[in-house]
Design a protein around this nucleic acid. Structure first.
Lengths: 118, 118
DNA sequence: GCTTGAGCTGGAGCGTACTCCAGCTTGTAG
DNA sequence: CTACAAGCTGGAGTACGCTCCAGCTCAAGC
């Protein structure tokens, strides 16, 4: 898989993939004879996971830290677990806030409907 | 209420309040004899609402648009309602994603625990 | 009436997370 | 063998959302 294929399948741009490699979010892949990046299939799952961390509000710096731990192998398992447990708690908080705001939107929309009806 | 009081009660900084005024998120308040901003109590509710829109991922540009509509009064009611209805849908989507990711965190954490136990 | 804290304006600076570009090399299709 | 698309590097530029600063005025306490 060349970088363009990864871009197409992951939804990231080629530039973003190289940027993620530069900052340590994605491990530098092998190169072919022409010096081009050749990725394994597994990178797609990793990118998807990164996107989920991102979409749930994990900071770049923390994602980079997690990626670094992951590359260090099994010795970092418990630290990674702790990071995920922490993140899980922040997701829970955001979730609660979202639900509150969703309820607020419902009330506001209903109120607007009433005002429009008058 | 002077700007410092609003800052304390809203949790925003004085600089942010002036910035929000500059970009149109907060209506320019009256000024006292010395030229200082004097806010009504209602600004606090408005700020809280803005924060909720913000925290649930509404873009600055859209919040500004909503604020502008609000200042134009009742004629914009239905447009505002539509914006909130749209935002409600995006919140729902984010909520679903968050719940998925929360479940993923749970699975990962459990898996890590297992690997650590070995 | 002097000090000190709060407020004012206009504009510069910053952190995050990309995004784009120039100038070059490589690979595939006609 | 020649286009031309895709890839490479290093570095500059961008968008968003604040945040800070200089240099000034205003207000309240001693």
């Amino acid at each position: 898989m060349l970088i363009g294929d990864v871009a197409k399948q992951s939804g990231l741009t080629v530039d973003t993939l190289r940027f993620y490699e530069k900052i340590g979010l994605i491990a530098p892949p092998m190169r072919n004879d022409g010096g081009r990046r050749v990725y394994g299939e597994d990178v797609l799952g990793w990118i998807k996971f990164l996107e989920q961390l991102n979409a749930t509000g994990m900071k770049q710096a923390d994602r980079i830290h997690y990626a670094a731990l992951r590359q260090q192998g099994d010795a970092t398992l418990s630290e990674r677990r702790e990071m995920l447990e922490l993140h899980r708690e922040t997701i829970k908080e955001k979730l609660a806030l979202m639900q509150d705001t969703l309820a607020l939107m419902d009330r506001k929309v209903a109120a607007y409907h009433e005002m429009e009806a008058k």
